[in-house]
Amino acid sequence: MTEQLVKRRIFAQEEKCNGCRICELRCSFYHEKLYAPSHSRIRIKKVEIEGTTIPETCRLCYKCIESCPEEAISKSEKTGAIQIDEQKCTGCEECVKACPFGVMHMHPVTNIAITCDLCDGDPQCVIYCPETALHYMTAKKFTEFKKKEKENIEAGKIPKHSPIP
């Protein structure tokens, strides 16, 4: 397990997200070969009247691990992602309550907790986001990326995506 891998997570640029929810469908398709936002590990939270669209992604804070009375939740050795032992999960929803970012959900069919597993290191939502609003990076890389993007926009090298005033 390399240190760098463990620290990578999905960062979202809210100001770029257009709310198309391709990420939600990519997620359900990758995991279950079907299309259903209710089965997705990533969700877009919207306030349409204000034009805000917020991709809710797992911050890897591991509060869910602490909250689980069944010890069904653990950290992936490979990616650092949350993994849920379906045999142990009883559907008690303690993890849903514990998650500060609203990204822990109950599967509508199995009633077992589901959350982002980073697609085992190849997150489909990041690959398919048409606005490149999602990034699978370390915090340091993401900060550098944003800085560089800002510079490029100011230099007119890439089209601007106007941030919300």
Binding site: N18, C20, G51, P163
Partner: peptide, 30 residues
Amino acid sequence: RVKSESCFACPIHCGKYSKVTTGKYAGTKG
């Protein structure tokens, strides 16, 4: 223009969200 506002599962996302911030029509949005 503020940002794009897409229909479901659309890679084109031609819809836009906009705001009027000054003048007589300030407050218009959507």
